[in-house]
Amino acid sequence: MNDNNKVLEVNDLRVAYNGTTVIEGLSFAVKRRDILVILGPNGAGKTTLLRSLLNLLPYQGDITWHAGKIGYVPPQELLRRQDIPPLKLSEFFAFKTSDREKIEAMLCAVGLDVRCLQRQFNELSTGQFQRMMIAWSLLDNPDVLILDEPTSGIDIGGEETIYSLLQKFWQKQNLTILLVTHDLHVVWEYATQVLCLNRQEMCMGEPDEVLTPEQLKRLYGSGIKFYQHRHG
């Protein structure tokens, strides 16, 4: 891989919580404009990996970014929407920029009515909220967008909207996306690269090449059913 084309390099990453190793000996690289989907069972270290990449956790090893701004959409369960002060969406967006036109343009781009700026932070549905969070994280034109299970708690229609939206931004901007999901169809549909993680790297490469039935069984255990996806 040409070095200039790399946006992220991870070498021999090790992350531990209270003496328990969660990720060990993980090395991989991400190219500019990749959509990297990180797959793995619960407790595999996916969220830990993202939080380490964002320097939110102490780690050993090397994480090198060749990127300017990095946007982040945390998992829903790590976002508090209740028991906070009254907060209009316009005020939430003002934490990032005072450019009203830019905010309104971004809201339109994610398919939200600009009138929702007058609504309370806790009044949006889960799907609307995630679209709003994507708009918020893309507001300062990041080079990389990191999302942790962006469609958890959203119905199938809403889920499709979120991924189509992400793909639209990916096509339009020079964006690299790192995404954690449990949804295999997202990998087939949108990923350019997949990283199978279960405390350490189980596989890494293009989905068609590395996501074999054997690999998925090794990753998730024998309970997994495999349905071959074919591109039209």
Partner: peptide
């Protein structure tokens, strides 16, 4: 208060 991770990033 909304998200420590979001604030930090």
């Amino acid at each position: 208060g909304i998200s420590a991770d979001l604030a930090q990033t």
